[in-house]
Amino acid sequence: MEDFKSGDLILGYYKVLEKLGEGNFGKVYKVEALKGRYKGKVFALKVASNPYSVHYLWKEAQTLILFHHQNIVSLQSYLYKKDKKELYLIYEYMDFGTLKDYVEKKGKLSPEEALKVLRHVVNALEYLHSRGYIHSDLKPENVFGKRVLGGVLWKLGDFSLVRIRGDVSIIDVKGTIGFIAPEIFRGEIHRSSDIYSLGCLTLYMLTGKVPFEGKDFKERKEKNKRGEVEIPEEIPGKLKDLLERMLEVDYKRRFRTARELKEYMVKEGLI
């Protein structure tokens, strides 16, 4: 796959401003639209050429294009070029970067700031869960910030969507060590699996450390598999109680959906 440079044109009218990154699913560029209804607007454009990535992202794009929520990164359009066998996806540009970058820069977040991010992500999950989807890969790299008047609006992106069939879907293990719900290692997933991952994400914000520390990957994976996570005593009472509910090893004892979690947070004055 071609590596575009600053000034190059993609699809004839997206001017490359800079390369934002590269991963298993393709390369991402910051681009400016030179014509059409979005002329002058900046986007994030992902280019995928690996057959698996193209197939996966094509299916995902058909769902994401229908999502419209202020806390979900919007997919503006997508196009498959048969001659190059490449898929192009145009997303809104998130100018504040990822939550991972932000936490690494600050060391850790205050309880107040962590709760603000949590509220935004809960809103996004509530939208997904109510439409029959599970995100299944919640982690700091998949939460993006956008500068808005008076602060930062946090949005959920980079989906590994799982469609819910009944109460449970059986899947291959998805997610990232440190943020995976224990039941996923058994090949099953529930809406509450997202809640567990969100608990890990919240703990990461408050401590600046990925949960399930160990001397190597194998030890970290085994701890994650067993759900052996420690919640520091210095975390304030109500927030600590919330985390304990979110990080229950038994998925039946967690909040079942993002809506349940949100209702609890409202009741406890955390929203």
Rank of each mutant, 00 (worst) to 15 (best):
K218F: 11
K139F: 03
M246C: 01
E112T: 14
L11M: 10
G26A: 07
S169L: 06
G227C: 08
E183L: 03
K106D: 03
G166V: 13
I195Q: 01
L99I: 07
G36L: 04
L149N: 14
V42N: 07
N24R: 11
M205E: 14
L247F: 07
F179D: 02
F4R: 10
V103K: 07
L203V: 02
G178Q: 01
Y102P: 07
D8N: 09
R131Y: 11
I271E: 14
K5D: 05
E233K: 14
L125G: 03
D101M: 08
M94F: 09
S49K: 14
I10E: 03
M1D: 14
D101S: 15
R256K: 15
A61N: 08
I271R: 09
I10K: 06
V266E: 12
M205H: 08
S169G: 09
L115P: 02
F96R: 11
K27N: 10
E126G: 06
I177K: 01
K174P: 01
K100L: 15
K41V: 05
E233N: 06
L115Y: 07
V148R: 13
K35N: 14
L109E: 05
N71F: 11
G166K: 04
G166C: 03
E234A: 00
L45V: 10
A258E: 04
G97M: 01
T63H: 09
I189T: 15
Y264Q: 04
E183Y: 06
R191A: 04
E213W: 08
A48G: 06
L206Y: 07
G166D: 07
L242N: 01
K105R: 15
L118H: 04
Q76E: 15
